[in-house]
């Protein structure tokens, strides 16, 4: 009896979730292109000067055990 009741509850829950999902529309981009002036400023770049960024990754990789996920100009170096 308890098993049957659990199954029923799960079915109702799934049905409710289904309705909920069907009722939701996909989120729309909330920052419009004309609102992106600040983001387009070069000072907002994670890696403004690629050649210099690569060099600093190289400096750290050669002296630390951690490697990877450095950001824009990462990707390893042929150094030992």
């Amino acid at each position: 009896m308890i098993k049957k009741s659990n199954k029923f509850n799960s079915a109702v829950l799934l049905l409710c979730l289904g309705f909920l999902i069907a009722g939701c529309s996909a989120p729309k981009p909330w920052v419009k292109p004309y609102e992106r002036n600040n983001l387009a400023d070069p000072i907002m770049s994670f890696d403004r000067d690629g050649v210099e960024g690569s060099y600093m990754h190289h400096v750290h990789q050669a002296r630390e055990s951690a490697r990877g996920a450095e950001g824009g100009s990462g990707g390893g170096c042929g150094c030992n």
């Binding site: 920052v31 600040n38 983001l39 990877g68 990462g74």
Partner: peptide, 13 residues
């Protein structure tokens, strides 16, 4: 937001 950007990176070597 119009002033905020975030990034996640994962790398396996």
């Amino acid at each position: 937001t119009k002033n905020w950007i975030a990034n996640i990176s994962v790398e396996t070597v």
